[in-house]
Design a protein around this nucleic acid. Sequence first.
DNA 1: GTGAAAGCGCTAACAC
DNA 2: GTGTTAGCGCTTTCAC
Lengths: 344, 344
Amino acid sequence: MAKATIDDVAKLAGVSIKTVSRVINDEPNVRASTRERVESAIAQLNYRPNLSARNLASHRSHLVVLVYDDPTAYVTPSSGYIIRMQEGTLKACKQANCDLLIHPCNYRNPDVKDELRTLIERSRPDGVVIAAPLSNMANVVNAIAETNTPYVRISPGLSANDQFFVATNDREVSAEMTRYLASLGHKRIAFITGHPEHRAVANRLQGYKDGLTQSGLTVDEELVIAGDSSIASGVTCAEELLDLSEPPTAIFAANDDMAAGVIQVANRRGIQIPEQLSVAGFDDSALARQIFPALTTVRQPLNEMAETAALALIGDNSEEVLQSGALTVPGKLQLRDSTGPARA
Amino acid sequence: MAKATIDDVAKLAGVSIKTVSRVINDEPNVRASTRERVESAIAQLNYRPNLSARNLASHRSHLVVLVYDDPTAYVTPSSGYIIRMQEGTLKACKQANCDLLIHPCNYRNPDVKDELRTLIERSRPDGVVIAAPLSNMANVVNAIAETNTPYVRISPGLSANDQFFVATNDREVSAEMTRYLASLGHKRIAFITGHPEHRAVANRLQGYKDGLTQSGLTVDEELVIAGDSSIASGVTCAEELLDLSEPPTAIFAANDDMAAGVIQVANRRGIQIPEQLSVAGFDDSALARQIFPALTTVRQPLNEMAETAALALIGDNSEEVLQSGALTVPGKLQLRDSTGPARA
DNA sequence: GTGAAAGCGCTAACAC
DNA sequence: GTGTTAGCGCTTTCAC
C-alpha cells in the first residue's frame, strides 16, 4: 500500500485537508468531535506527515544539527565526550519531536565554511548546537551565524557577542577540586593544562590557582605544565613532573584522558596510587571508571549542557531562553580511589 | 538577503530552471558553455538547492539513518563502537553527498516499531544502516523493512533472508588469535563470551574452539565462561577463572571491555601481565591502547563495515552491491603488550 | 470552527 | 540541448 497523505486522511475523516493540518499541528479551532474523527482516520491509515513537504511549506524542518570536532582529525574530543553531547541533544530532540543530524568537522579545513553552509542551507535545521572546542572557532561560528539559523554554543571560552550559550562552572569547580586536594594535606599539587585551543579548559587552570590561594598555598610555576588533552601528553607531563627533584604529591589534570596518562606512568614506575600519589581528572568520562584505580574527577554535565542547548533552540519556550544570555550547568566533584591523604 | 532559489539562478544565467536542475544533478545533455554559465551564476548567488524541495519532488532525501542500541538503555555498545560506526557511515555520506541522521533506540521498548516508522516515514531517508546487535532484533529489522526503505544490517548473527549485509570474519580471526596464544606455549587458554544477544560475538566462541582444535588442544568447558560484554562482567569472570585450582595462563575475551576487566583484576592481585598471564581482547577499541599494558586484540574494521554498508545504499553502484548477497570485511590481529610466552 | 486556493522550491515527463 | 507544464504533500492566507 502506498503511503497515506493528508488528502487520504481528509477524505476518510470527511473534512478538508486544512482541518487535518490543524489536528497534526495541535492548532486550536477544531471541535473536539472533529479532532477525534481526524485522529482515528490518522490511526487507521497509519498516516505520518511528510517532513519535506512540511518543511517546504512551513520553513520548519524539525531537524537539529550538532557540529563538533571531527575526532578523526585530531586527538581532542574523546568518543565519550561526543557521545554525551549526542545523548543530551537527542534527549531534547525526542522531547520536541525533532531528529538529529550530526556533523563532525575539521575547523582547520579551509572549506569548512562552505561545508557548513551547504549543510545548513540544504537541510534547513531549526537550530544548530555547536560543541566545544568548536564553539570557539570564529570561522565555524561565523559560517553558521551567516545562515541566520539559530544556534547555541556550548562552553565557548569567551562570550564574544550577546548570543546565548551554555557553559559549566569550570573555574569554580576546579578551585573546589584543588581545595579538596589541599584538604587532604597535599602541599605540592601540580596541574596539567589541556588543549590550548579549548578555551573552557583554560578556565580550569584559573580555578586551580584560585584553589591554591584559597587554601593558603602559593602557585609554583614549576608545577604547572602544558598538555594537549591527550593521554599521550598526560604520560609525557607525568614523567616530567615525577622527575622533578621535589616531585608533586598530587597531580590535577585538566581532563580525564591526561589523568589516565598520569596513572599509566605511575603504574609503570611502581608508584602506588593514592598512597604515594594522588591523581585527579576532569570530565568524568567513561574512562574514569574504567581505569584502575578509579579516577577522582569532576563530573562535567555534558549531557545536560547539550540538552539545555538544544531545548533553547527547539523547546517550548525557546524564544525566552534564547534571550536569557547564558545558562550555567554546574559540575560536581566525583571522589573515587585515585586520591587520598598526602603521605606523612 | 534572502536565499537564492533555482529561479534566481535560472534568471541570472539566462536559462530555464530545468537546465539549472540538470546542472546541479550532474545530468547529461547540457552544453559545456551553458553549464559554465549556470555554475558561475550558482557561485555568484551562493545558491544551495533546498533539500526538502528536492526530496518532495524526487523522492530522494540524501539522508541516511543510522540506528543502533541506545547506550543509555544498556551496557552493551561502548561509545567507541558507536563512534566508529558513525565515522564509517559519515565517510560514505560525505562521498555520496548525503547527511546523516542518528537514532539510538531501545529494542525492548514496545513502541520501538512505531518510533522507527515515524522516523523513517517522515524523514524518508535513502537508506538505513542497522548496527549490531540491533541488526539481529526481529522487531527492529521488520519495522524498517515494512517501510520499504533500503537497509543494510551490520554483523547480523544469522542471515535470515537474502538481504544484503556486511560482516566480519569473527570466527576465522578468533581462531587465529587462539592459535597465536597456543603458539606462545599456552595450554590452558580461557574464553569469556559476550552479550548473549549479540549473535556475531557468539561466532567468536566458535572460532576459539576451532583454534584450540587446530592447535591440538582440547576444549575444556571449565575454561569457557559467560560474560555480558561489560567491563564489570570481565572483572567477575576473571576472578572466577583465576580462582580455579588450575587457572588459565591466557584469557581471550570476546571483546576489549571484558579484557580490560581481566587486566584490572590482574593489577589488583599483583599478577604480572604478560609474564604470568596473557590477555587478549576483540574490537581494538580506543580502550585497548589506553589501558596498561596495551591490549593485544583483534582489530574489528567497524569503520569500514559501516562505510561499506552505507555505500551499498547510497554509493554509485549501490544497486549491484545490494544484489551481491553479503560482504565480509576481515579483521586483523593487533599484537600489543598484554600477551607473551607462557611461563615455563 | 472550517475550507478553498495559492504556493513553498524543486524534479518528472514530455515537447520542441 | 533546452524549455514547459504539472505536480510532490504540506502550510499559509484569507474567506466564510
